[in-house]
Design a protein around this nucleic acid. Structure first.
Length: 814
RNA sequence: AGGGAUAUGGUGUAAUGGCAGCACAACGGUUUUUGGAACCGUUUGUCUAGGUUCGAAUCCUGGUAUCCCUGCCA
């Protein structure tokens, strides 16, 4: 037996946290079921990759990475009407951008149409598939529904030769679209609708982007996907939760076609992102209606757009690694993504200054224009830099003293409009009439006077440079008017105003709309459009310091106090700079002013969900929802007369009422206790049946005989056995079929435990856990359970728990 | 309705019968020539009612809630 490779515990590459799938993988590797694991990410090339795909591809690829396996990229391009080369290229390109390298393992389902077809013929020859010739409507009708089992179509009984002949003629193109389909012959009455003879092939005359018109029958997902996994040698095939029901077909196919070793399907919960939609159709509509400029509009959730926005692949992967894996569909807080993006940029983006909404300031007290040498990095980044070196915009790593740029200063400068206030709010730390503020890197100024236009808008400020011999509460950024470079700034914000744009937002509707809306419900499909954020793009014209002209085009900056920006890779020109904001800085000042103002901020941002729910619940504590108030919880269905008879019989034998009730309504349990000994031990056996054996009984995995339980129960009630020992033995006996008491006697587990042995065990446990001991003595009494558990384990369950607790307590206190 | 899946702070997760932990968010403080970052601290949680057990987030039963399935899409 070899040790399964363990995931790396440290390092810079983001890892998949342990989850139920990695557990399965470790088990499979350990048991030798597979030598190496193989995973695949299988997009349909019918749209661009988006943030929703990031999670799935990260899970597929990184899991394989961590366990020393390999991963494939595969195009599930079986639908000729949807798949295109453009999407294939875009998806592969975006995934490469993320840093994935599948080497030669890039597959197209459509390359294997021939092999799929041969398997289809095999199924027909085995009698496992047939050609059906009813119309789609008829097939839907015959399939039945949840209450009604399906009925066979008149063609289900066609013999093998006829089926084979028809299938070949379908392939040869003898029939028009929809004339026939190939169906698996599984189970028309299955409660799992997927199993009611799923369609395997359909006739579709058209052009496939890779196969042209070579084929006129195309395989369905449920046929193609498992086959392709098996053909590629995939071991662990992960997909999202909505395919749970499809797994039955997957397993059926693997079994009928005798794949060994074979892949297995595991399903995980999807992850949505707040304020984001990922539906292809809905995203396309945003483009068509001109709400955004295209698939790469920086506000879009596509990877192309996030790339253009300036988010780095490292940030995207760090985000993916933050998200946990389980079997529930969940929505991730947007802050998790934003945090990943900021965290990545903080150590990547040199600091420079740009004024987005300029106001001119004329400075007195400055003798002559000069050029200041200002550092690219703040003290903390310098302090934390590896090797003591920091990066220049060119990427070169240099001594922090050399990581500077020249910043001209003259008597005409621009500052941010928001950084001067004639009537400052409480707590304002910027420039005010007569007040002082520090110009970043240039000294302290005092505002002497200002001019306004007719509307009262400040147009010009006159200030005095006081140098260092003054005090100032705040720091603001600036650029020198003569040398500053004009630029356009695009400030992006979330596209939607509400966390879940695809759901109903009854409490969000403006009053007038709510009045006319039907019960506050928005029309189901287009409703997301009304939650569009009208402020998702703001365009400003301002100035950036001239040093940026010397930097590489793809430099990402932090414009101090403004956020992270870079040149829009599509529209920025050397002589017409366009900077897009990748993400804002956190802004606790804006948040506090917003909160005290009591209304939405100037940009019309939504409040976060938490604040709104808090306020509503705080003001209206527990408003009983009329919809639920009337609905008393339903109780269990009443017993049938036959079950009542069972119940009476079981209780007369001594079973507890609750146990008897559970057994009475369950055929499997009834059958089991039928063979139990009907004496004083019956109550205990019934209890074990209900509490310990039920899951195994239903799964059919319980080997032990009910009659063999009586001696065990007798020993237990006689006090010659602890509950722990009895239950452990019961569990093992259930699996092995051995009589549990015989097992206990063979292993000497009924030997009992002397007081001296118990004392020693407790001493050992206390010695082995000094930290817990002192924590207990310091008042953390919750650790009593921990110590009890340790003692029970040490003694193999032979200790009497009540005694353990008593003795342990005095030992702990002493 | 029938079948399936799921339920742990505001959000995402960990604890595999024995200390309810971590991250993000929020809040407070320290520090800071960015109202950034960093550092320290605080608040908040096992859907519900029973059962088994010395001990239950975990096992059992009922209930509730959410999602998925009834395409010749994937």
């Amino acid at each position: 037996m070899t040790d399964a490779p363990k995931p790396p515990t440290s390092g810079n590459t983001p890892t998949v946290a342990p989850n139920f799938i990695t557990e399965i993988i470790e088990r499979d590797l350990q048991s030798g079921k597979y030598q190496t694991i193989v995973t695949r990410f299988p997009p349909e090339p019918s749209g661009y990759a988006h943030l929703g795909h990031v999670f799935a591809s990260f899970l597929d690829f990184q899991t394989a990475n961590q366990y020393g396996g390999r991963y494939h990229l595969r195009m599930d391009d079986t639908n000729p009407e949807l798949a295109t080369q453009e999407y294939v290229d875009a998806i592969a390109d975006d995934l490469k951008w993320l840093g994935w390298d599948w080497g030669e393992h890039f597959y197209y389902a459509s390359d294997n149409f021939e092999q799929y077809y041969e398997y289809a013929e095999q199924l027909v020859r085995q009698g496992d598939a047939y050609v059906d010739s009813v119309s789609p409507d008829e097939m839907a009708r015959l399939r039945g529904d949840s209450k009604t089992p399906g009925t066979p179509s008149e063609y289900r009984g066609r013999n093998m030769e006829e089926n084979l002949d028809l299938l070949r003629r379908m392939k040869a193109g003898e029939f028009p679209d929809g004339a026939h389909v190939l169906r698996a012959k599984i189970d028309l009455s299955s409660p799992n609708m997927k199993l009611r003879d799923p369609v395997l092939y359909r006739i579709l005359h058209g052009q496939h982007y890779r196969q042209g018109d070579r084929w006129c029958i195309y395989p369905m997902y449920d046929f193609q996907h498992p086959l392709q996994d098996a053909l590629e040698g995939v071991t662990h095939s992960m997909c999202s939760l909505e395919f749970v029901d499809n797994r039955a077909i997957y397993d059926w196919l693997m079994e009928r076609l005798n794949f060994d070793p074979r892949p297995h399907q595991y399903e995980f919960g999807r992850r949505g992102l707040e304020y984001t939609i990922t539906s292809k159709r809905k995203l396309r509509r945003l483009i068509e209606e001109g709400k955004v400029t295209g698939w790469d509009d920086p506000r879009m959730p596509t990877l192309r757009a996030q790339r253009r926005l300036g988010v780095t692949p490292e940030a995207v992967k760090a985000f993916a690694a933050q998200i946990g894996v389980n079997r529930t569909n969940r929505t991730v807080d947007l802050a998790v993504y934003e945090n990943a993006v900021r965290d990545d940029l903080n150590h990547r983006a040199p600091r420079v200054m740009a004024v987005l909404e300029p106001v001119k300031v004329t400075l007195s007290g400055l003798d002559e224009a000069k050029t200041l040498s200002l550092p690219y990095w703040p003290h903390d980044v310098v302090r934390d830099s590896p090797g003591g070196l920091v990066r220049l915009p060119t990427g070169e790593r240099v001594d922090p003293a050399k990581a500077v740029r020249g910043v001209p200063l003259s008597s005409e400068i621009y500052i941010e409009r928001e950084d001067f206030s004639a009537e400052p709010p409480k707590g304002y730390k910027r420039l005010t009439p007569g007040g002082t503020v520090r110009l970043r890197g240039a000294g302290i100024i005092r505002a002497d006077s200002f001019e306004t236009d007719d509307a009262g808008k400040v147009t010009h400020i006159h200030a005095t440079l006081l140098g260092e011999n003054a005090k100032a509460g705040g720091v603001i950024h600036w650029v020198s008017a003569a040398e500053a470079v004009p630029a356009e700034f695009r400030l992006y914000d979330r596209l939607f105003l509400v966390p879940n744009p695809e759901g109903e937002q009854a409490d969000f509707l403006p009053d007038d709309e709510e009045a006319q809306g039907e019960n506050g419900k928005a029309p189901a499909d287009a409703s997301y459009l009304r939650y569009l954020n009208p402020g998702s793009l703001r365009v400003l014209r301002g100035y950036v310091e001239p040093s940026v002209l010397r930097d590489p085009q793809d430099t990402r900056y932090q414009f101090e106090r403004q956020g992270y920006f870079w040149r829009d890779p599509v529209e920025s020109r050397e002589d017409a700079l366009v900077f897009g904001r990748i993400i804002t800085l956190k802004d606790t000042w804006a948040k506090s002013t917003e909160a005290s103002a009591g209304g939405p901020p100037s940009q019309g941002f939504p409040r976060k969900g938490r604040e709104s729910t808090e306020s509503t619940t705080a003001q209206a504590p527990l408003p009983t929802d009329p919809a639920t108030a009337h609905r008393a919880p339903r109780t269990a269905a009443p017993l049938t007369p036959a079950q009542e008879a069972h119940l009476a019989r079981l209780t007369s034998l001594g079973a507890a009422e609750a146990d008897a009730r559970i057994i009475a309504r369950d055929e499997v349990l009834l059958k089991f206790v039928e063979s139990a000994v009907q004496d004083g031990t019956f109550a205990q056996v019934a209890s074990w049946t209900v509490n310990d054996l039920v899951a195994g009984l239903r799964a059919g995995s319980v080997q032990v005989q009910a009659a063999d339980l009586a001696p065990l129960a007798r020993e237990l009630t006689g006090g010659r056995l602890t509950t722990r020992v009895a239950r452990d033995a019961l569990a093992r006996a259930a699996a092995s079929g051995e009589a549990p008491l015989a097992m206990i006697e063979r292993e000497g587990l009924n030997a009992g435990l002397s007081d001296a042995d118990l004392q020693e065990a407790i001493r050992d446990v206390l010695d082995a856990n000094p930290n817990e001991l002192s924590a207990y003595r310091a008042g953390k009494t919750a650790l009593l359970g921990f110590f009890t558990g340790q003692v029970m384990r040490d003694t193999g369950g032979k200790a009497e728990p009540k005694k353990v607790a008593a003795v342990l307590k005095s030992a702990l206190e002493g």
